[in-house]
């Protein structure tokens, strides 16, 4: 019998709505032509933007192009950034557009965010095994990174992108829907499926019986 208690995720403000203290200062300086301020922002977010691009495109070269284009476009269009969201959220939206363009160019008939998603029977989890309190601690950081990126790569792109924005970048449902041109119910439906599929895929690494 499982002893772990299932509680909802702790309520906290979304990072997309929390502005780091110095971010508006750096953005204002970059807008005024201070290149080193912009470079500080690049240094702060390059790893995350590269991971996002790699998770969406599933190709290292494409991810590198996407990251470069995202930062260059951000710099060129800084004047249009109104500061209504975090700079990072704005940057993510630029990077997602670039990544989707790459993906569609590479696989024009395979990437559609508009397709209908079935709901019903197959949502029910097949494997139900307890993972214990901190299953990720059984792996080294680099090993865990490999597990997570190969697991997310197995998802269909339309689920992968929604999960990336909602649960990795921690954008709100509304921000995700707007960034991807999807309805809110479509985002919710894809997110639920992505979460359940990833849970099932991670089960093979994290179930107690795997490590006992």
């Amino acid at each position: 019998m499982s002893t772990s208690k299932a509680n909802p995720l702790p309520a906290r403000p979304l990072p997309s709505q929390v502005v780091k203290d110095d971010e508006p200062i750096l953005v204002a300086a970059a807008k005024a032509g201070d290149i080193s301020a912009f470079e500080t922002l690049v240094g702060r977010y390059e790893r995350k933007i590269f991971r996002l691009a790699q998770n969406i495109t599933q190709n290292k070269e494409d991810a590198e192009d996407v990251m470069q284009e995202a930062f260059l476009k951000a710099y060129e269009h800084l004047g249009e950034f109104q500061g209504n969201s975090r700079f990072y959220t704005w940057l993510v939206r630029i990077a997602v557009n670039q990544a989707l363009m790459k993906l569609r160019k590479r696989r024009p008939n395979q990437v559609s965010l508009d397709e209908e998603v079935d709901t019903g029977e197959e949502l029910m989890p097949r494997e139900v095994e307890d993972w214990g309190p901190s299953p990720e601690e059984r792996y080294k950081q680099s090993e865990l990174g490999g597990i997570l990126s190969s697991t997310i790569a197995e998802l269909d792109p339309s689920f992968r992108i929604v999960f990336q924005l909602r649960d990795i970048e921690e954008m709100s449902t509304e921000e995700t829907a707007e960034a991807l041109g999807l309805s809110i119910p479509a985002v919710k439906s894809r997110l639920l499926r992505a979460r359940l599929k990833l849970r099932q895929k991670l089960n093979r690494y994290f179930r107690r019986s795997e490590n006992s």
């Binding site: 772990s4 208690k5 299932a6 139900v128 095994e129 299953p135 990720e136 865990l144 990795i168 990833l198």
Partner: peptide, 17 residues
């Protein structure tokens, strides 16, 4: 309970990575 708990952990593991 296990499904809720492991799905929550899935989200947290990705989010904290």
């Amino acid at each position: 309970r296990v499904v809720v708990d492991t799905t929550k952990k899935t989200i947290q593991i990705f989010c904290n990575s």
